[in-house]
Design a protein around this nucleic acid. Sequence first.
RNA 1: GCACCCUUAGCUCAGUUGGUAGAGCAGCGCAUUUACACUGCGAAGGUCGGGGGUUCGAGCCCCUCAGGGUGCACCA
Length: 704
Amino acid sequence: MDPKFLKPYNPAETEGRIYKMWEESGFFNPDNLLGERSEPFTIILPPPNVTGRLHMGHALMLALQDTFIRYKRMRGFKTLWLPGTDHAAIATQAVVEKQIKKEEDKSRHDLGREGFLKRVEAFAAESHDTIVGQIKAMGASLDWSREAFTLDEKRSLAVRTVFKQMYDAGLIYRANRIVNWDPKGQTTISDDEIVYEERPGTLYTFRYTKDFPIPIATTRPETKVGDVAVAVHPDDARYKEFIGKEYDAVFCDAPIHIKVVADKEIDPTFGTGAVGVTPAHSFTDWEIAERHDLPKDKLVINEFAKMMVPGRLNGKKATEAREMVVEWLKNEGLFEKEEVATHNIATAERTGGVIEPLPKLQWWVDVDKEVPDRGKTLKELMLEPVRDGKIKIIPDYFDKTYFHWIENLRDWCISRQIWYGHRIPVWYKGEEIAVGEAPEGDGWVQDEDTLDTWFSSGLWTFSTLGWPEQTADLKLFHPTDVLETGHDILFFWVARMILMTEFALGTIPFKTVYLHGLVRDAKGQKMSKSLGNALDPLEIAGKYGADAARMALVVGNTPGTDMRISEDKVRGYKHFANKLWNIARFVLANAGGARVEISGPEWKEFEALAKDVTKDLEEYRPYLAAEKLYHYVWHRFADQIIEESKPVLKSPDAATRQALLRALLEGSLKLLHPFMPFITEEIWQSMGHEQLLMVSEWPARIKQ
RNA sequence: GCACCCUUAGCUCAGUUGGUAGAGCAGCGCAUUUACACUGCGAAGGUCGGGGGUUCGAGCCCCUCAGGGUGCACCA
């Protein structure tokens, strides 16, 4: 017996060596796997953002996916787990901008587009290397020969190709429309990138002039200089007589022209039952303006959230202007009352900036237009595979959330005013426009904007497999089997992948969506650097072993439910790893060499466990499978079977018992391998096996 | 406002198709020439949020109430 078994299990000494052994075997690559393996099993890794380091959520994702992949590999599937990273456009740009500001007190504009992009790329490359090292440390059996990046040459081609196809199909269009403008990030963002924060606010009631017949209630008095109408409910008896009338006024130095319109969307019971309509700075007002053919180009706030209007307000910050308007109203005797009202403020997810709705010329994806040759809209194409069960979401109650989101979906704004990302593949020359690839000849100017990062992420399952080229990989491995990701990006990503794949390939991107919960600290707080409660997966794995970290993340972690993780839990599974180590020590010392037919109740019991665990894995209950294995190995195999074996090993039945113990250990190693790959492989190798445990045969066969 | 989830041991959470509840940590008693002290054995601890119903049988299914959370919408 190897003397290392006389000491406690030492993951630090083991893991690097084992991972290297796996990598050198070539078996991470499905092309090298031995045997028939006609059936593929594919997971494309959700690409971590190249914004720095991995966190516990990534570790969880890696643990779960590696468990699924290792299980299927042992069951004889041609398994592909494809790695990659995400350029994460706005997120990465924001990190580098902050860094440059802090270190050199410069903005991206000081560096220029080209110079700035070089800096971002250098940062991204560094992050990439850190991340790959972290992924390997977790034991992830990814096929590194197929690694992809959302912004590399092949993925860029895929992006340009889809863009052109959607443009030609009339699904991508350019339009001037009210958008979510982030004054802090100086870019538009999509509806999904908004976080609503409940804040106390004030609802002011006032009149435009002394003789204006209708009082107005608003939380944003400063925008009232941009009003073009007052909307009331058509049946509101108080205001019926004024509908259709027009008024001129000077509001805080600015001339305004107000038309009274009737709109059934107005709630007569809220405020005064009359809305001052500001089409350029409010989504609902924009829609009212469209319905009543009101002017929509009256801009009074600019991209920096500053007023642009004749008179005293000009150049003031919107928040400052608000106070000035209120003061003016009071001085003029137009102010009626103010009430406290909590309301939701739209903020940008990445920068925290308060969203300022503004009309902007942007690129959009039309989700309500019929897709040529499909006879369905993109919305319907997103809805159908989930509704028909072609795509199964785990846990299934997320179906409802998904449907609800799609029903409320508006056109997707895909252009961003940032530099890092896929530049919009559109070129202009006077009135001419070219889409897809850069046209020949002089005088063409490319669109300045870049694409929403989720546009390229949406192609991930097939761009990684070589599309638009019809590669052998694409044919064999797509649609993929499982998408395993956090429930927080169900809309951002999962929905967009379904949209893109249905459009470009006419098929689904994956059959199963497994949504894990978010990892929180022991107190239930979200882990973050600023709170100082973030556990570094690498540090945890270094201290307790990657296997222990993985078990702690997997056991009891049900899909869709946020989980808490603490070092104590990881320590518990380190003890378990050591228990397994000592079981191996006992078996190696007491059960060498015997070759006897295995049977008896203990073996039957093991076979039943193997079947049970297999069923759990097939039905995506890794949290249960891991717990059952833990219980069996410690409290049945070690506590009972080994204890009972001690006298038997001194009896005439020793040979049979030795064979049983050996078989139970080997079987347990196999079942545990997907969860704790390092220690199981290490023990397996110490038992004198020539082949890797990673590609050994799974000890149970049940139908899927 | 609409929808969904959660409420189980002191704490944090599991509990697959309904068959009198389990992990981690904490904590109690015993054991140190034991495969393993990174330990073992044993005990204790739960009217499974309250109430009602279905069932031979409910932590699990249905209704209802209370508390906590999330998503979406509204937000003049």
